[in-house]
């Protein structure tokens, strides 16, 4: 059986259900790299160019964890997933960066994903991938259908309140199941909106267990995944100038929706050091959140240093502040 490796990194967190269903249906075995650990991060840091950001370095680590044990490596050249908006330019260059830096790379499935002109779609992309694996037309068509069904189920689960890792690991169950209601907020409990790239906030290693830590401090955590694409587009559309970063738009749209809901005590924004789009999006967010509604906002920058002390100090001070505001 052909083994297709998928690095547990970057857009794995957005498209894994699509890719897994497609390749499984095509008769391949899908192999995912292990969850991030020190060895994976170190390997990535050694291998990637210093100029890139932490998530890209980590991606290198996940690729290295798969090389040697898979026949193909799925690294789509992600340019754009919607008209007139783009994914980060570093994503676009991933296949080239890998080829330049890693010897003995398995063959890459690096089909370009570019829907910016409103023409391409996932079906075309998946079909090209299928042809690389030399599948026949009927099988490819069928695999495309299963893939898209899996992805829309995933989206549905997220909007129903399942957290992304739960939806990915199958805890969310079959279509249509509602997430069991979260425990009711007792006195002094906080509602915190956590914004940041999925590949940062859901990677327990580089986010230093941020979500768990917030929960243990008595906070209920909501992320941008709860907000539907329509609401995100509508909310982000209220900016005076159209934002052309897909991932940045998601965060701004979600932040505005959270502000308007009036249900949140604070917003935490996680940014990775060296991220170009985020250096602008973070600043936009901080200013607009303040202008629209004075919800406390905190920016957390994550980088290679693993010491959690700085993070804990900030989280403690932030939750302390929110609790005191509530009382006062």
């Amino acid at each position: 059986m052909i083994k297709v490796g998928i690095p547990r990194s970057l857009l794995y967190y957005s498209y894994f259900p699509l890719w897994r269903a497609f390749f499984t249906e095509m008769g391949a075995e899908v192999v995912v790299s292990p969850e991030t650990n020190k060895a994976i991060l170190d390997a990535g840091l050694r291998s990637a160019l210093d100029e890139t950001c932490l998530p890209v370095k980590l991606f290198f680590g996940h690729v290295l964890a798969l090389t040697g044990s898979v026949d193909y490596l799925l690294v789509p050249r992600l340019i754009s997933v919607e008209p007139k908006a783009y994914i980060c330019p570093k994503f676009m260059g991933l296949p080239d960066m890998l080829r330049a830096r890693i010897p003995n790379l398995p063959p890459l499935i690096d089909v370009a994903v570019d829907f910016s002109r409103g023409t391409g779609n996932w079906e075309n992309v998946l079909s090209s991938m299928g042809r690389l694996l030399a599948g026949d037309r009927r099988l490819i068509r069928q695999a495309c259908r299963s893939a898209q069904a899996a992805q829309s189920l995933f989206q549905e689960q997220l909007e129903k309140g399942w957290l992304l890792p739960e939806a990915l690991n199958g805890a969310a169950g079959e279509r249509g199941t509602e997430r069991p209601a979260p425990p009711s907020p007792g006195s002094g409990r906080l509602n915190i909106a956590l914004l940041g790239h999925d590949y940062n906030i859901y990677d327990e290693y580089i986010s230093m267990n941020l979500i768990k830590r917030l929960r243990s401090m008595g906070a209920r955590v909501a992320t941008a995944d709860l907000v539907s694409q329509a609401v995100i587009d509508e909310q982000a559309g209220t900016l005076p100038k159209k934002l052309f970063w897909t991932l940045g738009k998601k965060m701004i749209g979600a932040a505005f929706a959270f502000c308007d809901s009036g249900q949140f005590d604070g917003i935490i924004y996680v940014s990775s050091f060296g991220c170009g789009p985020e250096s602008l999006v973070g600043e936009l967010l901080a200013r607009w959140v303040k202008r629209r509604r004075g919800i406390p906002f905190m920016l957390l920058t994550i980088d290679e240093h693993s010491g959690a002390a700085g993070l804990v100090t900030r989280l403690e001070a932030f939750t302390d502040m929110l609790l005191r505001r509530e009382k006062g």
Binding site: F273, P296, T301, H305, T313, A317, F318, R324, G328
Partner: peptide
Amino acid sequence: RDGIVVDFAMNTV
């Protein structure tokens, strides 16, 4: 403001 912390920041790296 009014004796309560409403915002703070610390230097980064």
